[in-house]
Amino acid sequence: MASVGIIDYGMGNLHSLGKALERVAGGTRVVTSYDPEVLLKCDRLVLPGVGGVRECMRELQRLELNQMVIEAARKKPMLGICLGMQVFLEWSDENGGVPALGLFPGKVTRFPDPPEDGGADRLKVPHMGWNRVHQTRAHPLWEGVPDDAWFYFVHSYHAEPACPDHVLGTSDYTKTFACALARDNLVAFQFHPEKSQNAGMTLLANFVQWDP
């Protein structure tokens, strides 16, 4: 039986992601685990994450999951969500600067802080709420998702990929930033598909079906 593994390194709420994947999985089994051996047996993997990058990388290392992720990234379809996307890059400026997994060249940087006295209309950080996602190129994961569909975001840092070809989608908040990345068998979203109602369910269903 085909399976999708959720990498559980102890940070954040995996409940809604697990439920959302189960809802769209069809005949695919959903496995949540922190055991590298269990996860390597899954056909595809999801790296979720909320919280700070330093703690995230520390936990991935402590559970010996970072090498597993790098190994799996060579062959399995893998999806990074939110902080899970950010650690796919080489470096994050968060927590004073932390080296990450380096699956995509580039780094993660913070949105500019709003001015103290800029009035109520200034853009606040975190970028929290529903924003439109512009699809910059075709990809099997966009199948059935309208261009400029709304997705739910919660983050203060965003990816700056070094290679423009890796950008799959962008969003606008203080500037245009990459909120979806893809190369080969890897895909990553800054927004939360598991919290983005129908458009999000379609993306997850596409990931479960994806045969890169």
């Binding site: 409940h15 809604s16 439920k19 959302a20 739910y152 919660v154 598991e194 919290k195 983005s196 109602q197 999000g200 369910m201």
Partner: peptide, 11 residues
């Protein structure tokens, strides 16, 4: 919370 979160995919 569990019953709602398993069916509703908004925050």
């Amino acid at each position: 919370v569990e019953a709602v979160a398993s069916q509703i995919y908004i925050p």
